[in-house]
Lab assay of single mutants.
Amino acid sequence: VGDQVLEIVPSNEEQIKNLLQLEAQEHLQLDFWKSPTTPGETAHVRVPFVNVQAVKVFLESQGIAYSIMIED
């Protein structure tokens, strides 16, 4: 199991704000291929294997929908 690319769908401005804060966490080494800008629009982010669980827990705790787009 390696890195994953998640497709994330924020449903409101609050969730977009939370994702932008997540993007700013440099220690997570997230690679946003497509940043969140509009509710209902997908964002794509590559998550290093060591941080996959932490990111998924965060998304679930914020009620942000996501799916695994690419499993490496």
Rank of each mutant, 00 (worst) to 15 (best):
V1Q: 14
G2S: 07
G2R: 05
G2P: 09
D3L: 08
D3E: 07
D3R: 06
D3P: 06
D3Y: 15
Q4M: 14
Q4D: 03
V5L: 09
L6M: 07
L6A: 01
E7D: 05
E7L: 15
E7Q: 13
I8N: 00
V9Q: 06
V9R: 13
P10W: 04
P10G: 03
S11D: 09
N12Q: 02
E13G: 06
E13L: 13
E13W: 15
E14I: 08
E14V: 06
Q15R: 01
Q15N: 02
Q15Y: 01
Q15F: 01
I16D: 00
I16F: 07
I16L: 12
K17M: 12
K17D: 06
N18T: 14
N18H: 13
L20Y: 09
L20F: 11
L20K: 11
L20C: 06
L20T: 05
L20S: 05
L20V: 07
L20P: 01
Q21A: 13
Q21D: 12
L22K: 03
L22E: 02
L22Q: 03
L22N: 02
E23M: 15
A24Y: 09
A24H: 09
Q25K: 09
Q25V: 09
Q25M: 14
Q25C: 12
E26G: 14
E26L: 13
H27R: 06
H27T: 06
L28M: 09
L28H: 03
L28P: 04
Q29N: 12
Q29L: 09
L30P: 01
L30I: 11
L30A: 03
D31N: 14
D31P: 03
D31E: 15
F32P: 02
F32W: 15
F32N: 02
F32K: 02
W33Q: 08
W33N: 05
K34P: 05
K34H: 08
K34F: 05
S35W: 13
P36Y: 03
P36F: 05
T37K: 07
T37N: 06
T37G: 06
T37E: 05
T38P: 02
P39C: 04
P39I: 10
G40E: 03
E41T: 07
E41L: 07
T42V: 14
T42Y: 07
A43I: 15
H44D: 01
H44M: 15
H44L: 15
H44V: 15
V45N: 01
V45F: 04
R46Y: 10
R46P: 01
R46V: 06
V47T: 02
V47M: 02
V47P: 00
V47K: 00
V47E: 00
V47H: 00
P48G: 04
F49I: 07
F49R: 06
F49T: 06
V50L: 11
V50E: 11
V50Y: 09
V50I: 12
V50P: 07
N51G: 04
V52I: 13
V52D: 02
V52W: 13
V52G: 03
V52Q: 05
Q53L: 11
Q53T: 10
Q53G: 08
A54C: 08
V55E: 00
K56E: 04
K56G: 03
K56C: 09
V57L: 14
F58I: 07
F58L: 06
L59G: 00
L59R: 00
L59Q: 00
E60P: 00
E60I: 07
Q62S: 10
G63L: 05
G63T: 03
I64K: 00
I64H: 00
I64C: 01
A65E: 09
A65I: 10
A65W: 14
Y66Q: 00
S67A: 07
S67T: 13
S67Y: 09
I68T: 05
I68A: 04
M69S: 06
M69F: 10
M69T: 05
I70M: 11
I70S: 13
E71Q: 13
D72C: 15
D72Y: 15
D72G: 09
